[in-house]
Amino acid sequence: MNLAWYWTALIAFLIVNFLLVSASVLVYAERKVSGYMQNRPGPNRVGPFGFLQPFADVLKLVMKENIVPAMANPFVHSLAPMMMVVIAMTAGALIPFAHNVVIADMDVSVLVLLALTSISVYGVTLAGWSSNSKYSLLGGLRSSAQMISYELSMGLAVLSVVLIAGSLSLTDIVVDQSGGWGILGWNVFRNPLGCILFIVTAFAETNRAPFDLPEAEQELVGGYHTEYSGMKFGMFFLAEYVNFFIASFVIVTLFFGGYMLPFESLIIAQFPGLEGSLTLMALQIGTVILKAGFFAYVFIWVRWTLPRFKYQQLMTLGWKYLLPIALVNALLVAVGLIIFS
């Protein structure tokens, strides 16, 4: 629990770099996966199998001129993309990557996580407002409405997990899932409804398709980032990918046993030497990345399959279906806890 500061600093350094690299890997993965889904090869020119394509993209973005529209508010215009990236990166501090491998192991990390997702809406809204463009403004407005609507359901889904774990700390939530046989202790089996709710709301909170109304390439021509160019646009891009990777990590942490290996207790019973060893830590880090990678793949998969929601559909889904279900779910979990304990 109480790591020396230099360890924390080292982990923080590693994790920030990991997120930056993973964003570029995800960009590559997204383009490659979409390519295969659309019966085309995807990027295959820059580097082996096109693996350097994201770096070429970044190079292009860095070289581009930074255009600020004449009527824009230059300060807020620059602030918005920075906010997006900083918030996206900060959320990475809360994720336990292995036992004790976490930058900020707070007692209230779940609350901090929810707070961070709430703040990230400012980035989008401010970007939409400060560009002083009608399309951007519409995108920003949509984004704020969407995030507020889905935050409630998301909070309630998280609440059901917190109720089960009896703690607001993400590490405790992971440890809490180690009970039960094999993988049956995972929250996805104890709280399946909450899991589905959380995954759906996570799509909405990260503005990914089919909830990408704030961007809506075809109607709003990019929405809140219409007026951004160069690396400022690149920062939105980076934030989007980091965001949905972090969202995958949060889904894994809350519902799929976090960093725990599948059947971890059984494996440790078989090989007692693993307990507390570096090998186990490495295995755990690998596991959580694999699990999160799977959900990142789901994010990509859904994006290239489904059409986008309409604004009213989005609101109907959020308020009329997800919120009541989330309320009932939280209530059921609470009642169940009283009955079974």
Partner: peptide
Amino acid sequence: GLMDAGAVSVFLWTFQ
């Protein structure tokens, strides 16, 4: 039409 609705993949399938 599908691409306008956000389902980009269909565009490439039909274009094939």
